[in-house]
């Protein structure tokens, strides 16, 4: 759910601007890239069984470098919370709540994340699981209902702005699947390395399929020049659905789906940030950290000057450079662990 949520964001419009109408298979390349990098994360976790990535950074790189790597990871998650909350807020203001102050939307969204953080990872995982099935059904219903507005010719030219551009962008945007690293943060609490491997690979493949099918539908409904101008393609597509005079416009379903999945997504990211912070400073109780961290998250959300800077600078910055903290740093840690022959002994799950 954390990975797939991006299909409801401004991402489809942006990638169409960069590579044309080939987003649906570009994302599969990104997914394959993420699979490769998750392979490195898996190898790293396998080398230090029963430990989370924060402990592994310390063991592999030493306390100082380990601290820097872990802190950068935490900052990346905190920025993700802030930036995605802001992106959501601005889009919601455009389409549904034009008169509501952004601070109200940001504040309430972070409040939900704070509640989730107080209740813990177990509760968040259960809510995500519970919401996943109706969200998936709702999502595919929207795609199926759009069948009558599909124009297969929109997929042409099949290579968009060029295959090379699609492949390179696909590799660079592997960070679209970076939330899989959350598994490494909670590795110590999960049921063994094989379970993490299974969860990671299945979630990446499933997300790849869901995002790709969504992008394919957008490409089939909108001409590539039109989609570039849309802030959120999924919303506009649901508004175009019409069967007869009464059964038309599925935007209420979309809104509910989008808000529920986004709030769970933000909660997951926020709890991960809190958890990394506690692990870095070896704090047993996360509760005192939650509210200060929420203040930082709200600050990060309010920081961007306007919506265009959110989209062009912050969201794309996270997409382009997120790879470094989420994927490349674990690969570096793995390389150093191999060179220094660092290995962890088997440790029971927390």
């Amino acid at each position: 759910m954390a990975i797939c949520n991006k299909i409801f964001s401004t991402t489809p419009g942006y990638i169409t601007k960069v590579i044309g109408n080939t987003g649906w298979y570009m994302t599969l390349i990104s997914c394959a890239t993420a699979l490769v990098f998750f392979g490195f994360i898996y190898l790293l976790l396998k080398r230090f069984p029963g430990r989370n990535i924060i402990e592994i950074y310390d063991a592999s790189l030493g306390r100082v470098m380990g601290f820097i790597f872990s802190f950068l990871l935490m900052v990346s998650f905190l920025l993700s919370v802030g930036i995605y909350t802001r992106e959501f807020t601005d889009i919601l203001k455009i389409y549904a709540l034009p008169a509501t102050p952004p601070s109200v939307i940001i504040g309430t969204m972070i409040f939900a994340a704070v509640v989730a953080a107080f209740l813990g990872i177990e509760t968040i995982a259960r809510v995500a699981k519970l919401a996943f099935y109706p969200a998936l059904v709702g999502y595919f219903l929207i795609l199926i209902f759009s069948l009558n507005i599909f124009k297969p010719t929109n997929l042409l030219p099949i290579f968009g702005y060029g295959l090379d551009k699609t492949v390179i962008t696909g590799i660079l945007r592997g960070s679209a699947y970076d939330e899989v690293v959350i598994l490494a943060v909670f590795a110590g609490s999960l049921q063994g390395i094989e379970h993490i491997k299974k969860a990671g690979f299945i979630s990446l493949l499933l997300s790849g399929f869901i995002i790709s099918s969504g992008l394919l539908c957008f490409a089939l409904v909108f001409e590539y020049r039109a989609i570039q101008e849309l802030t959120i393609a999924a919303y506009v597509m649901t508004r175009k659905i019409a069967y007869g005079t009464f059964f038309q416009r599925m935007d209420p379903i979309f809104l509910l789906l989008w808000i529920i999945t986004t709030s769970i997504y933000i909660s997951i990211l926020f709890y991960t940030t809190v958890s990394i912070y506690c692990k870095i400073f070896r704090l047993q109780d996360a509760k005192p950290v939650v509210v200060p961290m929420a203040v930082l998250a709200v600050s990060a959300a309010i920081f961007p000057r306007d919506f265009s800077s959110v989209l062009s600078v912050y969201v794309q910055g996270l997409r382009n450079y997120g790879n470094i903290t989420f994927f490349i740093m674990p690969a570096i840690a793995l390389g150093i662990a191999v060179i220094r022959n660092k290995k962890g002994e088997s440790k029971c799950a927390d």
Binding site: L97, T100, T108, F111, S263
Partner: peptide
Amino acid sequence: LGFYGISLMAVI
């Protein structure tokens, strides 16, 4: 808060 309020309340 409209649909947003309802959805958020449902999540909480």
